[in-house]
Design a protein around this nucleic acid. Structure first.
Lengths: 107, 107
DNA sequence: CTAACCCATAACCACGCAGTTATATATCGG
DNA sequence: CCGATATATAACTGCGTGGTTATGGGTTAG
């Protein structure tokens, strides 16, 4: 059974897919066509990557006519931040800070 | 050319390998034998994973007699924390916090 | 010196997955 | 309607990689 960490890490491990997600984080909502233009791979490849990101809860899609708009769900990165903080033992000494940070990520 | 992010993400994407790293983070320095006992895979597999982690700068090895001791390099997670913070735009509003956090990670 | 032990490397295999082209589905413009 | 556009899915392929067993090299014990 894949844990949340498994899903997030494996979803972000691929450079192309992570690039798409980064672009969505920085540039906001974008269509598949727009993402394809910048991805350097074919449109079906981009669609597949978006499917993986969606399954991982990292993006949301919105259909409008014949195009699909995707947006990044930044809160989905909370487990990643949580895991990293645990590993650095940041949580031991500064648990309050982490708590605040996670709260701020919930929109 | 693989970026630092590429290396860290791909190194931590595999569950077995991430498990080994987690164990090192929590339990401190451990031998290959000790790690193998808990990993659920063969000793050569563990050695290979440790090789990947070492190449990614996530662990250090220390030879002592016929056994090799491994330790986690927590600072190596800094780029991961940095990336996540950038994506969450945490850095925009709370740059000082991130700066402090990264400083604390340097030992 | 030799046997047992610890770890790394070699050689191999199976499978997953990222990429492709081709095609289906659906929407818009004329 | 009909062609064009936008996206998703299907079908296929090649390669990377995580696993195995077998072996080598170095170290400790007897």
């Amino acid at each position: 059974m894949p844990t949340p960490h498994d899903i997030i890490f494996s979803a972000l491990a691929d450079p192309t897919r992570r690039g798409i997600f980064e672009r969505l984080c920085r540039g906001g909502e974008q269509t598949v066509g727009g993402l394809t233009a910048a991805a350097g791979v074919s449109q079906p490849a981009v669609s597949k990557h978006l499917g993986v990101l969606k399954k991982a809860g990292l993006v949301l899609d919105r259909h409008e006519g014949r195009q699909t708009h995707y947006t990044a769900r930044r809160q989905a990165l909370a487990p990643l931040l949580d895991w990293t903080s645990q590993m650095t033992e940041f949580w031991e000494s500064r648990f309050d800070d982490l708590d605040d940070l996670l709260k701020r990520m919930d929109q």
